[in-house]
């Protein structure tokens, strides 16, 4: 009895000590997490978005004014629509092109060529967005850009890529695909390589044709990766900032202005910190809701059985 009690006592004592040492190990992570991740989120959502703050004079509580102001602002609709356009264009393109490229590369027999293709497709993903975006503004130039030169050679008219309201989002989307498709491509490539050959062999024996095996085996087996790519590209597209900032600065007019760009302009150009926080909160809520919906839908189609 006494022995047992001692043991228990020792255990709880140990537990307290364990807890202390665990928190000591965690302290750098917790401090930075609170200061730069959790704290800011809480501050934005619970406080800043209800205030007026221009960083020079003290904050002033204004209730829901910022949200009303955002609702009244005539350009808000355009900005949200633009962001939606990026999502609608970029998510399917990344998901599908990335998959096709990964399948194409996985078909390559020669190890060297495989390496070459993989490098060519993935390399833009590791280079600095800012520096290649600069180069692309020149490639896109209407009068002496390389892209229009080729279009002209093919008999097409020059396209005013970055200087027309019609083409600004397509131009940014093409750049974005070029720059970032390598990431989903790599995820898929790894996923495909992890599919055991035996699945395909079994399917062949069952007399399945190529298309059937693709939709019955490859897609279901890759579904966790596809889900991951959809979720991450969706969050990325909702927050798209660098590409429009560097290529068009949101223009011409408001044609390529996004929510993220708008937040940046309000927060760090006109110093309406409260107003910008309110927009950030709305963006946060949209992303959170849509991501949760995706997670709840995933049960219907994502297949984790083979892992």
């Amino acid at each position: 009895m006494t022995n047992n009690k001692n043991l228990k006592l020792k255990y709880t004592k140990n537990n307290v000590k364990d807890t202390i040492s665990a928190y000591l190990f965690l302290s750098p992570a917790i401090i930075t997490f609170v200061l730069f991740v959790a704290g800011p989120v809480v501050l934005t959502v619970c406080y800043l978005c209800f205030t007026k703050y221009n960083i020079i004079t003290p904050t002033e509580f204004v209730g829901l004014d910022n949200f009303i102001k955002l609702f009244d602002y005539p350009v808000t609709g355009t900005i949200f629509k633009n962001t939606l356009k990026y999502v609608v264009v970029l998510v399917p393109l990344h998901v599908i092109i990335g998959l096709l490229l990964a399948i194409g590369v996985s078909k390559e027999v020669s190890g060297r060529l495989k390496y070459f293709f993989r490098t060519a497709i993935y390399f833009p993903s590791v280079v600095t967005t800012a520096s290649v975006a600069i180069a692309w503004t020149y490639l896109y130039n209407k009068d002496f850009g390389v892209i229009n030169y080729f279009l002209n050679r093919l008999g097409a008219d020059s396209i005013p890529w970055l200087i027309s309201t019609k083409w600004s989002i397509p131009a940014i989307a093409i750049f974005s695909i070029w720059k970032f498709v390598g990431t989903p491509f790599l995820y898929y490539l790894i996923g495909i390589q992890n599919i055991p050959d035996s699945f395909y062999e079994a399917a062949t024996i069952d007399g399945a044709n190529k298309l059937q095996t693709f939709f019955k085996i490859t897609i279901p087996l890759l579904s966790p990766t596809i889900f991951f790519v959809i979720t991450t590209t969706f969050i990325g597209a909702m927050q798209i900032f660098e590409e429009p900032f560097l290529l068009t600065n949101g223009g011409p007019g408001d044609s390529s202005r996004t929510i993220a760009l708008f937040i940046y302009e309000k927060a760090f150009k006109s110093y309406q910190m409260g107003y910008a926080s309110a927009i950030a909160v709305i963006l946060f809520i949209i992303i959170l809701l849509l991501t949760l919906i995706q997670f709840s839908l995933q049960k219907k189609w994502v297949n984790y059985d083979y892992e």
Binding site: S164, G253, S255
Partner: peptide, 15 residues
């Protein structure tokens, strides 16, 4: 800022 945005919208002939 507002001026620049609408000037470019006019120049593109969109509005």
């Amino acid at each position: 800022n507002v001026f620049d945005r609408y000037l470019s919208a006019v120049l593109t002939n969109e509005m």
